[in-house]
Design a protein around this nucleic acid. Structure first.
Length: 921
RNA sequence: GGGCCGUUAGCUCAGUUGGCCAGAGCGCCUCGCUUACACCGAGGAGGUCAUCCGUUCGAGCCGGAUACGGCCCACCA
């Protein structure tokens, strides 16, 4: 016992309790979910953090809020599961490891080969994946760690192959040549979402194209002059009188001797911009590619020429420029045109250039073969699910982001020219053919023939089938799938799909998805699509979007900006509970929260913002220490309602109110309101008022037992209510409360089932609020506050109680007598009741509160008091004038609700009465 | 260019369907180390609710416009 009391003195030290509490939960399997257990199902799947990065405060808030929901539901008796996991983050991870390879060994991926590189990435993954799990545990996440998934593990891989196969068989996956965003450095295509735009200072070159059979030139402007080698047309607006005469004629493309047509395209060309002529390079510009598509098969169909290699050097189609790099070719093309007199002018220009998020190099629009998912049939049911409220967003405005994006139904490019990821399960051959056996193979393989190539997709990794294919001359597609393809399956793949597992039937659809708004489109929408496609059911019923944590300058925390803060840094300075409490307070309905960060001498970060959480934990620790000491000194007896003091009845009522508020707040994902409710109840009501009010009773052996029963019950309730947000400290205190007092019953209420561990204890019960006690106590508070106020104003000696004569309001006469001790203790005074007609001396300070008149003796000199009263009179005059003015307004009296008008009248009467009394003095 | 969000005390943020004198935490000022807690307690100062117009008996809240800041999406040869 003595060693236990050691850390129970002084300030709360989180480092002495957090690891121990977490170890107990782990040892006892407190996070483990069992599908056979009874109770309503509640489940959450974690947004899997990227294995590339350490977690920052954005992850901390995300996981804290999930943990609050999970712990609350677990205490409610729900059969609760929180599935943890990590995302393999294809391109990001491969980029990091490749960079490392280059720096440490000066090797490229081709030096170590596909298998060698993947092996190295796995090694890297083990190390950093563990670090992420460790961070989550330090935060307190109560995930079922036995169910930890990795998007590249065998369970997820099966789900990926199965889904791909289904899509392939249903004709929803196709292969096609498309203009993609080509990352020249990483040699892969990247999606639109993996691109950021950067303003680049460059030039706008104006080039002259001679019109064939004419002396005239057409002038085109471009920021990429080297692409002119791939031009296959120039376009004008059909109603532009400057140029429409030339439609159908040709220009001679300089430096190539090719003749290219002049076409009309009213979508591409804005006649009011520049010269009104646009060069068309379908192989290297997305808009021009669209032109090519529009005109394909028409009378004015144009060619498509690719002039680049995958390394972004010019290829054989670029004639004399073949072999040159982009930049060099640009210089030479400009110089050569200039020499020919075909450079009209060069002007300074700023433009937005797409850069790859991963390699930070400029993206090249590049024509290549890619796999796509046909979106329209998948998107429609997913749109309908949100429209019909089967998936609800909170705050609901985010539904629009989802609906707008999905509504575009743009096909999803899913292939990546990477080695780290799920390899595309398709084998192809341009020459060989294989016959699928309809009785057996057809359910395991699907085949299409397109452009003379046979593609065979396998449902599962069947070695015999693969051998058969490869022997026949088929080879597997070298590409891997976009990371989001496996993330999209997360809610069902983690539960074991396509296997019909018990977990899947118990916990799918999941209950709530907690995530940030930047991946509503990339992730949330795709999960809804695949969930409906694979299982016919939405993956989750509710999506809660939490705020973004910004740094002190208002910028997003991110790894690339280097402004991310490791939650473990905060845990070291403030403790995990303090971190969680503060983040929870910040989870308001608005979008962003600023977090000024300080850098410590050791390079770690911290922020004063977390002091609030730390202080709160310290307060809880010390209040619990006080209650436990008292409870041990005077063991509680079962209190009867009749034995309770006003303060007791009041605090029990306040507790019931706090529980109701917490329930309402959590049901609406208003985590800030939950934190505020429990904070106010615990600190303002319980500590500031009830604990202080209880002190005289605790010194009185006749009453101590009853008072302690209430204190024990309130501490019990506070710990239950606070556990989801600050689990470590509440669990630790729970054990001590259990030791000190196993039974804790709030008078008039059914007891809870005993529980050794708070994590498994019942969620607090709501009860009826005692309106009468709350109203009466608030009047006592008003009297006490007024006495404190006057004493402070007159700098009364804090140790010497004032004599306060009270002329009680008619309905409070008995109550003042009954609660004399309360007023005297908290007001630091001696109370005397006086009758109407009481004559106060010169040195008496007068005040009114709760309808009572107060006379505080021995505080003042007459002059100061006269001045104070005069100020009060002025204020009352102002009030009375304003209230009379309002009541003199006929439309107010006629239109405002009756109770408000009556309230105004009451206020006027009260002010007038107080003024009369002051004047009489 | 389209869409969304924000602008309330020195700082970070609340403010529910319009209704007394607009709140909290931190910071600041005064007093107090009273055996739970100075990571504390009691009290206090501090706000033309970004600006303008409108609706209303009444606007921080509703409508319109403007300014500034941020985010998302999408393009300009």
């Amino acid at each position: 016992m003595s060693s236990e009391n050691e850390d129970f003195s002084g300030n709360y030290d989180p480092s002495r309790v957090e690891a121990a509490a977490y170890a107990v939960w782990m040892d006892e399997g407190a996070f483990k979910a069992d599908p056979a257990r009874s109770g309503p199902a509640y489940s959450i799947v974690i947004p899997p953090p990227n294995v590339t990065g350490a977690l920052h405060l954005g992850h901390a808030i995300n996981n804290t809020l999930q943990d609050i929901l999970v712990r609350m539901h677990r205490m409610r008796g729900d059969n609760t599961l929180w599935v943890p996991g990590i995302d393999h983050a294809g391109i990001a991870t491969q980029a990091v490891v490749e960079k490392q390879l280059k720096e440490k060994e000066n090797k490229t991926r081709h030096d170590v080969g596909r298998e060698g590189l993947v092996e190295r990435i796995w090694t890297w993954k083990e190390q950093f994946g563990d670090r992420i799990i460790e961070q989550l545990k330090r935060i307190g996440a109560s995930c079922d760690w036995d169910r930890t998934r990795f998007t590249l593990d065998e369970t997820c891989a099966r789900a990926v192959r199965q889904t791909f196969f289904k899509l392939f068989r249903d004709g929803l996956i196709y292969r096609g040549k498309r203009l993609v965003n080509w990352d020249v450095f990483l040699q892969t295509s990247v999606s639109d979402d993996e691109i950021y735009h950067e303003t680049v200072k460059t030039s706008l070159w104006h080039l002259r194209y001679p019109i064939e059979g004419s002396e005239k030139f057409m002038v085109v402007a471009t920021t990429r002059p080297e692409t002119m080698l791939g031009d296959t047309a120039v376009a004008v607006h059909s109603e532009d009188s400057r140029w429409n005469w030339a439609i159908g004629r040709k220009v001679r493309l300089p430096l190539t001797d090719r003749l290219i047509p002049i076409i009309a395209d009213d979508i591409l060309v804005d006649p009011k911009f520049g010269s009104g002529v646009v060069k068309v390079t379908p192989g290297h510009d997305p808009n021009d590619y669209a032109v090519w598509q529009r005109h394909a098969g028409q009378g004015d169909a144009i060619e498509l020429i690719n002039i680049l290699t995958p390394q972004a050097t010019l290829n054989e189609n670029a004639g004399a420029y073949a072999g040159m790099g982009r930049e060099a070719a640009r210089k030479k093309v400009v110089a050569d045109l200039d020499q020919l007199g075909l450079l009209e002018k060069e002007e300074a220009y700023e433009t937005q250039v797409g850069h790859s998020d991963r390699s930070k190099t400029p993206i090249e629009p590049y024509l290549s073969d890619q796999w796509f998912v046909h979106m329209a049939p998948l998107a429609e049911p997913a749109l309908e699910a949100v429209r019909q409220g089967k998936v609800r967003f909170s705050p609901d405005r985010y539904a629009r982001t989802y609906l707008d994006w999905l509504g575009e139904k743009r096909d999803w490019p899913i292939s990546r020219q990477l080695w780290w990821g799920h390899r595309i399960p398709v084998w192809s051959s341009a020459t060989a053919r294989i016959e699928l056996d309809h009785s057996g193979d057809a359910s395991a393989a699907a085949s299409v023939i397109r452009d003379g190539v046979q593609y065979v997709c396998l449902r599962d990794s069947d070695p015999a089938m693969i051998e058969r294919l490869e022997k026949a001359g088929f080879i597997q597609d070298p590409d891997v799938l976009d990371t989001w393809f496996s993330s999209a399956l997360w809610p069902h793949s983690t539960l074991g799909w396509p296997e019909a597992t018990a977990a899947l039937s118990r916990w799918y659809p999941t209950s709530t998805l907690v995530t940030s708004r930047d991946i509503i489109t990339l992730w949330v929408a795709r999960m809804v699509m695949t969930g409906l496609y694979n299982l016919g059911q939405v993956p989750f019923h509710e999506v809660y979007i939490h705020p973004t944590i910004l740094d002190g300058k208002g910028e997003r925390m991110s790894k690339s900006k280097g402004n991310g803060v490791d939650p473990v840094d905060i845990i070291l300075t403030h403790g995990a509970d303090a971190l969680r409490f503060t983040l929870t307070q910040m989870a308001t309905e608005t979008q962003d929260v600023r977090m000024p960060v300080k850098r410590l001498p050791d390079g770690r970060n911290t922020s004063d913002r977390f002091d609030a959480g730390r202080n709160f934990c310290n307060k809880l620790w010390n209040a619990a220490k006080f209650v436990l000491t008292q409870v041990q000194a005077h063991p509680p007896t079962a209190a009867t309602p009749a034995s309770l003091s006003l303060a007791d009845r009041w605090i029990v009522s306040r507790f019931h109110r706090a529980v109701a508020e917490a329930d309402a707040a959590l049901a609406q994902y208003r985590f800030d309101q939950y934190a505020r409710s429990v904070y106010d109840f615990f600190w303002r009501d319980l500590c500031d008022w009830h604990l202080e009010a209880s002190k005289p009773a605790l010194k009185d052996p006749a009453r101590a037992a009853t008072t302690n029963a209430v204190l024990a019950a309130m501490l019990d309730g506070a710990l239950r209510l606070l556990h989801p947000v600050i689990p470590f400290i509440t669990e630790t205190l729970w054990w001590r409360l259990n030791d000190a007092r196993p039974e804790r019953v709030i008078p008039g209420h059914t007891p809870y089932k005993p529980s050794r561990r708070l994590i498994a204890a019942e969620w607090p019960k709501t009860g009826e609020c005692d309106e009468a006690a709350e109203h009466l106590f608030s009047r006592m508070q008003e009297i006490i506050t007024t006495i404190r106020n006057v004493r402070n104003e007159y700098k009364a000696d804090p140790k010497r109680p004032s004599v306060v004569s009270i002329l009680a309001a008619p309905d409070l006469e008995a109550e003042i007598d009954a609660n004399r001790e309360l007023i005297e203790t908290l007001g630091i005074c001696v109370v005397r009741r006086v009758e109407p007609g009481h004559v106060a001396g010169d040195d008496v300070a007068r005040a009114t509160a709760a309808g009572c008149e107060l006379f505080l003796e021995g505080l003042v000199d007459p002059d100061a008091e006269r001045q104070r009263l005069s100020r009060r009179r002025d204020e009352l005059h102002r009030q009375i004038a304003a209230l009379r003015g309002r009541l003199g307004n006929d439309t107010y009296v006629a239109k405002a609700p009756a109770h408000l008008v009556q309230q105004t009248r009451d206020q006027l009467t009260a002010a007038e009465v107080e003024l009369t009394k002051l004047d009489a003095a």
